[in-house]
């Protein structure tokens, strides 16, 4: 019972840290995907007296990806609906050109404002509409949630690391005599701490595997059944193969940090 308790005392905080890391990885992927989606659906509206081309606007700002002309006739038809054909001709004569300007990546509001300013100064451009507020409202909310999550995960990480080190101290105490004898005979720290590494390494493997199983279950079972649209839409982003490696390496680093912290502190210091 004591054996299981001691290992759980080490594994649970370690798992909490790994879950935190996995959440950060997932949220980063979701953010990237969301920004890509925003970018694809978004376009700046430009009204111009003359024709505009992609190379022309890219020369002004290289974050501009492409320029898509809007159908003037359909606009004129909408405006002249129920009127005579001559009205349509007259309007077509005076109607400016409309363009959708697509961007290379997701840009901040300041960058959009800068592009607006640059485009507005181009000869012949009558109006530029960036729809900035709509574009950023959702994204700002998203960033806020991400920041809160990161702060929470950092705090969780610190507390969990302290718990892991505490448990390592318990194990170090149990093997204190052996480590002291080895030190008297000249064993370096790595060799003296070998027993702690051995115990912690096995627990690190178990904790990583348990974490991966939890996220495999969430991805393949729970996410398919949930009513939360956001999770359903991002189901593919929940767990990647590379996550397993990242979690395992993180677990090993945590183990190394905790063992070294305890081993250095417990090392016999000559008096004098």
């Amino acid at each position: 019972m004591k054996f299981i308790k001691e290992h759980l005392m080490f594994m649970l905080p370690l798992m909490a840290m790994l879950i935190g890391i996995e959440f950060i990885l997932i949220f980063n992927r979701v953010t990237t995907s969301y920004e890509k989606k925003l970018k694809n659906e978004y376009a700046i509206l430009v009204v111009s007296k003359r024709q505009l081309t992609t190379p022309m606007l890219r020369a002004i700002n290289e974050k501009i990806d492409s320029v898509e002309p809007m159908d003037r006739e359909s606009i004129a038809k909408e405006v002249t609906a129920g009127m005579q054909d001559s009205a349509m001709v007259a309007i077509m004569k005076d109607l400016p050109y409309f363009f959708r300007v697509h961007l290379t990546s997701y840009l901040s509001l300041d960058e959009l404002k800068e592009i607006k300013q640059q485009l507005s100064s181009v000869d012949g451009i009558l109006n530029v509409e960036i729809f900035g507020e709509n574009y950023h409202a959702k994204h700002t909310m998203f960033k806020l949630v991400k920041m809160i999550l990161n702060v929470f995960i950092v705090m969780l990480f610190v507390v969990s690391l302290l718990l892991v080190i505490k448990q390592m101290e318990v194990w170090q105490l149990a093997h204190k005599e052996r480590m002291a004898i080895m030190e008297i005979f000249g064993a370096p720290m790595m060799l003296r701490s070998g027993i702690l590494f051995k115990i912690a390494f096995i627990d690190a493997i178990i904790a990583t595997l348990l974490n991966v199983f939890i996220f495999i279950y969430i991805k393949n079972s729970w996410a398919s059944r949930t009513d939360i649209t956001f999770i359903k839409e991002n189901q593919d982003l929940l767990l990647n193969f590379s996550d397993f490696l990242i979690l395992f390496v993180t677990a090993l680093v945590i183990v190394a940090v905790s063992v070294f912290t305890v081993a250095i502190r417990s090392s016999e210091v000559p008096e004098g």
Binding site: R178, I181, M182, E183, I184, F185, G186, A187, P270
Partner: peptide, 24 residues
């Protein structure tokens, strides 16, 4: 230094009254 001390100890033989054997 610590590393030199460990090196010195590796070339010594030490016997204790309470044996100091690793019981495991």
């Amino acid at each position: 230094k610590k590393a030199q001390l460990l090196q010195l100890r590796r070339n010594l033989g030490i016997v204790f009254q309470d044996y100091k054997l690793i019981n495991e």
